[in-house]
């Protein structure tokens, strides 16, 4: 779900960068040394996950894992996803530099929301469900952004949601098992995060 360059209008691109820039400044200010290896690991996971894709209709969809990253990192998902998306843009030509702001927002907003909701009920099943819903959330934001630049919102939203439904289901399962694994082996990875600020 990377929006390519040349589709969005300038005001949309600019506001994407402004919000992403503000978010980066705010989240990086409270960065602690303990978060960095976790962020780097998950950035690498997100970077590589986009290579696993499923062809669907005229388009093709790939694993996002943004929900899981949000559940594990909270608001630090924003800088993590920003770095991965930046590397994907320069190395794989997914998306692009001008749309990086918007692409970061559409991936990280549902991720951060998933992180906040996960704190209410930290269980692997709930985390899995949130991981799936974050994918759909990104789809809705993508449709909204595209609608600002001319495409009919409902039509695009329907198309994106249908296309990402299989991915959402797969990510729910992946999220569930990953969290189950972490809860059994290294629960402090999640619990530490729950104790800190969002």
């Amino acid at each position: 779900m990377h929006i390519s360059e040349g589709i969005l209008s300038f005001p949309v691109l600019l506001s994407g960068w402004v919000y992403t820039g503000g978010g980066l400044f705010w989240t990086l200010k409270k960065l602690s040394a303990n978060d960095i290896p976790k962020m780097a690991l998950l950035a690498a996971v997100f970077f590589v996950a986009s290579l696993i894709h499923v062809p669907l209709g005229p388009s093709s969809v790939h694993l996002l894992l943004n929900g899981l990253i949000g559940v594990l990192l909270g608001s630090l998902a924003l800088p993590t996803l920003f770095i991965s998306l930046f590397l994907q843009a320069i190395l794989f030509q997914f998306g692009g530099i001008t749309v990086l702001g918007i692409n970061t927002l559409l991936m990280s907003l549902p991720a951060i929301l998933a992180g906040v909701l996960f704190k209410l009920k930290p269980s692997s099943l709930w985390g899995g469900i949130l991981s799936g819903f974050a994918v759909l959330g990104s789809g809705v934001i993508a449709a909204l952004v595209l609608s600002f630049s001319g495409e009919a919102f409902l039509q695009v939203a329907k198309l994106i949601l249908i296309a990402h439904l299989p991915i959402a289901i797969i990510e729910t399962i992946i999220g569930y098992f990953t969290l189950l694994f972490i809860f059994k082996t290294k629960p402090e990875l999640i619990l530490n995060n729950l104790g800190s600020k969002s």
Partner: peptide
Amino acid sequence: TALASAHR
């Protein structure tokens, strides 16, 4: 899921 070099 098919492993491939997607998404552009």
